[in-house]
Amino acid sequence: MTHSPTIGDDLEDLIACPTCDALYRVDAPGNGERAVCSRCHHVLIAPVEGAILRVVALALTIVILLVTALFMPFLSIEASGLHNATSIFEAGLAFSRAHMVILSLAVISLIIFIPILRALLLIYVLTPLMLRRRPWPGAHTAFRLSEHLRPWSMAEIFVLGVGVALVKITAMAHVELGMAFWLFALLVVVTVFQDGYLCRWSIWHALEESPEPGAPPSLAPAEEAPAHG
């Protein structure tokens, strides 16, 4: 758990709550436990066993799902003998037909590019940590960027939007769900798990350790911190 700081603490043993600025001495919780700010209840540290490996695996899954989904049939409708199909990319481009090119670019970024970019950044940052190597150059900037992109990665919101759109048209046309639809639905589940495993503090801590090649790994920073009592 975290404790009040005392004089003589090293800076690296201290942690400040980003939400309310309260200062604590780090006494890292074990895997599955959480350190919570006692005054604003912000979750400061929440390490998960084997988190780095899991996050890398899930990020890789996200990239594969998204890229595959781009090339798969997404949705098609049929009504009174007429037929039309759309891919995810075409759904994003729909606004450009109505002279809203900027909105098309934004939608494609929010549902495709940013989720892929974020997953790639996480793979870049965490793969060396997983292999017990030094972080690759720019890993710190990459992780910071990935965290700032988090709210703008909206693939899961898009899936709910597709659901609402389907309810709107099932009354007037027969809708066929393509493979890309199911891949996107799966993506929501994967993203939720990934965000649950990702403990910011643990990753920053592991990045800071940056072990010498061949040195013992800092895979689970929680175990290297002082025992909590």
């Binding site: 949705l75 098609s76 409708i77 009504a79 009174s80 007429l82 037929h83 039309n84 759309t86 075409e90 759904a91 994003g92 481009l93 729909a94 606004f95 037909r97 109505a98 909105l103 939608v107 929010l110 549902i111 909206m154 919101i157 898009f158 709910l160 939007g161 597709v162 609402v164 759109a165 709107k168 048209i169 046309a173 809708v175």
Partner: peptide, 18 residues
């Protein structure tokens, strides 16, 4: 999550072109 309606419009206008 407010962005949902924009996505609904995107999907509808891409799909419903009969």
């Amino acid at each position: 999550w407010s962005m949902i309606d924009v996505f609904v419009v995107a999907v509808l206008s891409a799909l419903v072109q009969l």
